[in-house]
Design a binder for these strands. Structure first.
Length: 511
RNA sequence: GCGGGUGUAGCUUAGUGGUAAAGCUCCAGCCUUCCAAGCUGGCUAUGAGGGUUCGAUUCCCUUCACCCGCUCCA
């Protein structure tokens, strides 16, 4: 396997465009940062991955530790929910803060965390005052003096003293920004204007656009599940432990969309919230981490490229008692890993927040044990968009010895096209037989009929699409009723009787 | 958001202050008995906007997108 000059991601991106997996959104207008469209093959692949997840999560969930199937139901909630949802979840408050960037140190600060001290100095060259910005903290004054002394040294020595009895907050005295030193800057005036960095998209519901009608596009699908948890409980006869699963679009105003579809501003999530008794939280957390790792392997992702990243206690969100990221070795993170799915033990934080903000009791009444509690939640939240990227990265093969050096080794059940059907030649009755076979197989499998150009080109096209099997109707079909089935992975061909084709495919294409 | 880089056809590349070139892909037809074969023909490009100029793909400015590093990733 020789390696071409261009990077793997560049080649994969080019293949995705060439074959219709993924296009840049609004390409004819120059593109739009952070948005991508799925083409005909891409949407098939994405739907196949989504359906596999739904099947293994909702229709046929894994067995629990007791050997009995888990109880998980589906839901599909609105992208736009009551604005209070995001106040309760913490998404509004956490991102309302104004931020400033420092052009010199390249650091970003919360504007209200920068305290500005006025420091008078007297040196042989003269007297004056500096406005020194420093991050608020116990030793802020100490830091200010230290930096002032440094500045004085540069001017040949002298005295400094803090003039301000109380420091100003940067946001209050922003008009003086040209004189202000950033916390890590050696020159004044390097801070950018304070800006809000809310990661949520917003819009207005109704014709009047004002603060009262402001709504948000969900930054995660999870909250919709929490909001309907009680309705599901009351209408479905489920009881803890049970799960609610959802697949859908989410939106985040990412600061830096990057790496193809890895970090985009509109993306799709597959999330499941698993509700359980408080004392069982950690057990289910471990259960789901193992289960989800196993699942990704079952989709054809090699074990070596998957990694469980246990979030250190110090880095955990305030509401989480344990979080593990399931990471994948993407070409752009290699030899390191990047997130694919997060499994978080969120405790009862979300339900309690919504209980408080909505003033609705969200307790579960456990009549068997005569107690009531707000369930704890374990959340396996995975990126469907990222999943597609992982499948593509994992499937991409480069082999100079093949007629089509680039090909996709997708798991057959996930491949966008399952079977290519070709008449070897466009005459002698072959197209008629091929079309008949196509009309039969397409009822069961996603098939593509192709009679154009040489047989080699047709195989090559199917290789790039990741189609696992190609069936060719040849001269023998007309005399012996056999077809040639060509295997994508081995490029080997075998003769199969026409009436055995369905059985052949069924055996190899079942999940 | 900061810094650096890159933008010519679907892809890979050429070229020029004066009609934008080629190979592969793709499409049509012919041919063709299994891996991008051959023949003929065809479609398609200077990211966008502005400026300088008689004339800009080329020079200048702005903007957009993509790539790399930083930052961010609740």
């Amino acid at each position: 396997m020789s390696k071409p000059e261009t990077s793997l991601m560049d080649r994969l991106t080019a293949l995705c465009k060439r074959r219709g997996f993924i296009f840049q959104a609004s390409e004819i207008y120059g593109g739009l940062n952070g948005f991508w469209d799925f083409g005909p093959l891409g949407v098939q692949l994405k739907n196949n991955l989504r359906d596999a997840w739904w099947h293994d999560m909702v229709d046929c969930p894994p067995l629990g530790p007791d050997g009995k199937p888990l109880s998980i139901v589906g839901i599909d909630t609105s992208i736009i929910q009551h604005p209070k949802t995001w106040i309760a979840s913490g998404h509004v408050a956490g991102f309302a803060d104004l931020m400033v960037d420092c052009r010199e140190s390249k650091k970003r600060y919360r504007a209200d965390h920068i305290k500005v001290y006025t420091v008078g100095y007297s040196t042989p060259k003269g007297v004056g005052a500096w406005s020194l910005g420093v991050l608020e903290g116990d030793d802020a004054e100490l830091q200010v003096l230290k930096r002032a002394k440094k500045l004085v040294q540069k001017q040949g020595g002298g005295d400094v003293r803090i003039d301000s009895s109380k420091p100003d907050t940067l946001t209050d005295i922003w008009e003086r920004h040209e004189d202000i030193y950033g916390p890590d800057a050696e020159n004044p005036g390097t801070l950018t204007e304070p800006r809000a960095f809310n990661l949520m998209f917003h819009s207005y519901s109704g014709v009047f656009q004002n603060e009262d009608s402001k709504v948000y596009l969900r930054p995660e699908t999870a909250q919709g599940i929490f909001l309907q948890y009680k309705n599901v409980l009351d209408s479905t006869r489920v009881k803890p432990p049970f799960g609610i699963a959802q697949v859908g679009k989410s939106f985040r105003n990412e600061v830096t969309p990057r790496n193809f579809i890895f970090r985009s501003r509109e993306f799709e999530q597959m999330e499941m919230e698993f509700f359980c008794a408080p004392e069982d939280g950690m057990m289910w957390y471990e259960f789901w981490v193992g289960e989800r790792l196993r699942w990704w392997e079952a989709q054809g992702v090699s074990k070596d490229n998957l990694f469980r990243h246990v979030i250190a206690d110090a880095d955990l969100s305030h509401y989480s008692k344990g979080t593990s990221d399931i990471e994948y070795r993407y070409p752009f993170t290699a030899p390191g890993f990047g997130e694919l799915e997060g499994v978080a033990y969120r405790t009862d934080y979300d339900l309690k927040q919504h209980q408080e903000h909505s003033k609705t009791n969200l307790e579960y009444i456990d009549q068997e044990n005569n107690r009531r509690y707000v369930p704890h939640v374990v959340e396996p939240a995975s990126g469907l968009t990222r999943g597609v990227l992982v499948l593509l990265c994992e499937a991409y093969q480069y082999d100079e010895s093949r007629a089509s050096p680039e090909w996709l080794k997708l798991k057959p059940s996930l491949a966008p096209i399952k079977v290519g059907i070709f008449p070897l030649m466009n005459k002698d009755g072959m197209p008629e037989v091929a079309e008949k076979l196509y009309m039969d197989l397409r009822r069961t499998y996603t098939c593509q009929y192709d009679a154009k150009q040489s047989i080699g080109k047709r195989y090559a096209r199917m290789d790039e699409a990741g189609t696992p099997f190609c069936i060719t109707i040849d001269g023998d079909t007309l005399t012996n009723q056999t077809v040639t089935i060509r295997n994508r992975d081995t490029a080997q061909q075998e003769k199969v009787a026409l009436d055995k084709v369905r059985a052949y495919l069924a055996e190899r294409l079942s999940a």
